[in-house]
Design a protein around this nucleic acid. Sequence first.
DNA 1: TTGACACTAGAACGAACGTTCAATATAATT
DNA 2: AATTATATTGAACGTTCGTTCTAGTGTCAA
Lengths: 190, 190
Amino acid sequence: MNEFKQKIFKLENFYRKKKRMPSFKELADLLRLKSKNSAYRWAEKLKEAEIIERDGQGKILPGRLFNQVSVLGTVEAGFPSPAEEELVDTMSLDEYLIENKEATFLLKVSGDSMIEAGIMPGDLALVEKGRTAKDGDIVIAQVDGSWTMKYLIKKGKQVYLKPANKKYSPIYPKEELNIAAVVKSVIRKY
Amino acid sequence: MNEFKQKIFKLENFYRKKKRMPSFKELADLLRLKSKNSAYRWAEKLKEAEIIERDGQGKILPGRLFNQVSVLGTVEAGFPSPAEEELVDTMSLDEYLIENKEATFLLKVSGDSMIEAGIMPGDLALVEKGRTAKDGDIVIAQVDGSWTMKYLIKKGKQVYLKPANKKYSPIYPKEELNIAAVVKSVIRKY
DNA sequence: TTGACACTAGAACGAACGTTCAATATAATT
DNA sequence: AATTATATTGAACGTTCGTTCTAGTGTCAA
């Protein structure tokens, strides 16, 4: 069964390098088979394992368990080993985090005004433009000329920005409060 | 030039739905052209714009500027509009965050012991197994039977785990300190 | 040894592939 | 209106595609 994993590895390597799935001829070469038909049979097994899919034209597509990150439980629950074949779940980070690619941008966070919300300088904020912000959302806003990232607080008619750091005070916009984007996720890389 | 963007959008939609790039016949249908050759010409332009690539067999592949998130500057620097065609940079989150897919897992964080490091309960920790941890790394470790996420501190011969929360005390392992994985990034979705 | 079974090989099929060429339509320029 | 440039079309080419069929290989049990 380890041989099976090796085939998956080869497939993923092909995909990473060529940015597409192989044809059956290419799959045969990849698995060191001498006929397309052998590759064809293997594809059936790989499909059953949900590593690949097939589309209407029979072409090989990446499947649910292809090239994705394994999602395990919580730390407290221990460190489950995914070797036992039954991966809890898998996902692509891009798909998980990005809903509307057109309006999504990454901003590097500077300053410590949101530090109590767990957003530190250097983090990447994934923001979405054009989305209407609700009370409690973290937003990218332009108040009286300058841009900041803060909590948006809507209390009845009053609207203001609240930092997540005791060192700073809430910002009550004198004139305009221009909300450019809503922070949808925060990414920190060590 | 806006018509150009619409074509890119159609392409990205195709890719999202079908999980592969179109053939020239399919590209012609997609762009509502009546001949493959017209699609062929468009592909040349899309390649020049680095939206797509072509491989040795002439097949269409996603290019550098395909289906990626735009990276902008810092918040303080304002909110640059990427409409001005010169996107600062783009990237795929998967590629950015995951080095070694085989050893990478996502764990849901529970508990507040790392809260001062900006890691809150509910966050996703992207961890890599089998990597040797350095002093100061955040690690998933098994001390005396139970699993935790803590800073790893190596001071000479002494090795212990330090939480990022004043409420908790450092953990000096009595017997074994089994480091299962190193935390490489933290992801929070709102 | 025999038979059943799982796997691989190899050839063959029509369809779809990337690419080229000549012909036509559309737009821009004189 | 005539001319040039640009974009699209449609047909044709060799190749590769997914798929099927038949034949061969080895393995294991009876």
